[in-house]
């Protein structure tokens, strides 16, 4: 569903991504872990074709994103750390707008259905987004993904800054989407969520995927230990270079 083959991105001399190979299948929740600047957001931006790769290919459902960016964008949904919506429009209007941009249109009741399904309070649906909390915005973001009937989800730290309850609700939604057969790639700092909701974990450091784990084979403690080992190794490497 989601495939990176020797994917590279360099900004001048700075290599943000040094040959990434990655596959996320339908029903997978692949969690990308790594420090800031490890290349997680770059990976997501490459899949979105927001930036041009300097090497390798990124594919969505077998389609190269640089060759047919509009086709691949129709297949995927993107939820950033902060789902940005139009403050002067209601949740309903925002959802309808984005659904229509994605090439879908539904009856008003169906839009309400999507917003109900992500757990938005019914009385909030017709209120303007500027009154919304971050958690509510993230829910609208998921509703947009639902309305888009996306086969692939790209999530960039979607739960950071959410309170534990909101974060838990968000994870529940992800599990539903996963059960529906979506392929989900999520960049996150939340090791606990990664172990809970993820099926696989990839640890990135300085533009490289340094280790992949299956979440059912490791414990919470293992995830944290392995993660920190890689981070320390990275530090030592950096110091040596310096």
């Amino acid at each position: 569903m989601l495939e990176a083959i020797n994917l590279k991105k360099a900004y001048g001399n700075m290599e943000a991504l040094k040959g990434l190979d990655l596959t996320v299948n339908s029903g997978d929740v692949y969690c990308l872990l790594g420090a800031n600047g490890a290349g997680k957001t770059t990976t997501i931006n490459l899949f979105l074709n927001f930036i041009e790769p300097t090497g390798g290919t990124a594919k969505v459902c077998g389609i190269d994103v640089t060759e047919q960016p509009l086709e691949t964008k129709k297949l995927l949904a993107y939820i950033p750390e902060q789902v940005m919506l139009y403050g002067n429009l209601t949740a309903m209007e925002n959802l309808r707008y984005f659904a229509q941009l994605g090439g879908h249109d539904y009856a008003p009741d169906e839009y309400r259905g999507f917003l109900n399904r992500v757990g938005l309070q019914p009385d909030a649906i017709d209120q303007r987004i500027k009154t919304y909390s971050k958690g509510m915005r993230q829910k609208v973001g998921v509703a947009i993904a639902l309305a888009k009937r996306a086969k692939v989800l790209l999530l960039d730290e979607p739960t950071s800054g959410l309170d534990p309850k909101a974060s838990n609700e968000f994870s529940q939604l992800l599990l539903q989407l996963k059960a529906d057969g979506a392929a989900i790639l999520m960049a996150t700092h939340d090791l606990f969520r990664a172990k809970e909701t993820g099926t696989r974990i990839g640890i990135m450091n300085e533009g490289r995927l340094v280790q992949e784990l299956s979440t059912d084979e490791v414990s919470h403690a293992d995830v944290e230990r392995i993660y920190l080992e890689h981070m320390h190794a990275g530090d030592q490497y950096s110091q040596k270079v310096a």
Binding site: L48, L70, K74, L85
Partner: peptide
């Protein structure tokens, strides 16, 4: 600036 452009451009609009 507000970030909605990313959201819009991820929808598959030219």
């Amino acid at each position: 600036e507000s970030g909605t452009l990313r959201q819009v451009m991820s929808m598959g609009v030219t």
